[in-house]
Simulated scan of single mutants.
Amino acid sequence: MTRKKALLVIDYTNDFVATNGALNCGEPGRAIEDALLQHVTDFDAAGDYIILPNDYHIKDDPYHPETAIFPPHNIGGTPGQDLYGKLADWYAAHQEQNNVYKYNKNRYSSFQNTNLDNYLRSRDIKELYLTGVCTDICVLHTAIAAYNLNYHINVYADSVASFDPAGHDWALGHFKNSLGANVIE
């Protein structure tokens, strides 16, 4: 029996990737677009799940810890929170499919304060493939949560990026060495 699997495309939004994004990770984020979209296309063709956790904030929220750390970004209802580039086009054409799930999250981890774990377990999905931005922030925290929930973790190295090259490299090593993830080069 084939294991069910899901591809998570984490925070691939205008504010994180576009040149005019409020907190963009620069050229590394844009450089992964084609590889990321290829993984999305492959998962869709195989009938596997494509999950799009999307960072969501309220402007100047005094209760959110990121307000003091980062400039305002991914504000709900703004173009900055929309999916970026070719992924936005793909999603527009596929959003009604049963294997595509997009939702908002309000913390680094795609699991924290969301129904992701329930969504995955109800579909008997145990194997996750991670893509998106930023490698050392939201992708990392999602991987740690997945590890703690006993998911099998895979990370596509060609489809994660960060504005911090050292943090990116450190996170790739951490996925493999501390979380037992399969980092696919």
Rank of each mutant, 00 (worst) to 15 (best):
P72F: 13
P72K: 08
F175S: 06
R3D: 14
K59H: 15
D82Y: 13
N98V: 04
D11I: 13
D136M: 06
N113G: 02
R30N: 05
I144T: 10
L87E: 07
S178V: 10
L23Q: 09
I137T: 07
P65S: 03
T135H: 03
H168D: 07
Y56L: 07
L52W: 01
L52F: 11
V9K: 05
Y56N: 10
K102R: 15
N14G: 02
V160K: 01
F43C: 00
I50A: 04
A46I: 01
Y56W: 12
I32M: 09
G29C: 02
T19D: 15
Y103S: 08
C138F: 12
N24D: 13
Q112L: 15
L140G: 07
T135I: 03
L120R: 01
P71R: 04
Q95K: 14
G180E: 12
A145L: 03
R123I: 08
A181H: 06
S110V: 01
S162K: 09
P165Q: 08
A35L: 10
A35G: 14
L149V: 08
S162C: 02
A22T: 01
F175G: 11
L36W: 02
A181F: 03
H73K: 13
C138N: 05
D61I: 03
D55W: 10
I51D: 03
S110A: 15
K105V: 07
V17A: 12
G167H: 00
T19L: 12
F16L: 14
N74E: 05
H168S: 06
Y151T: 06
I153C: 14
N182K: 13
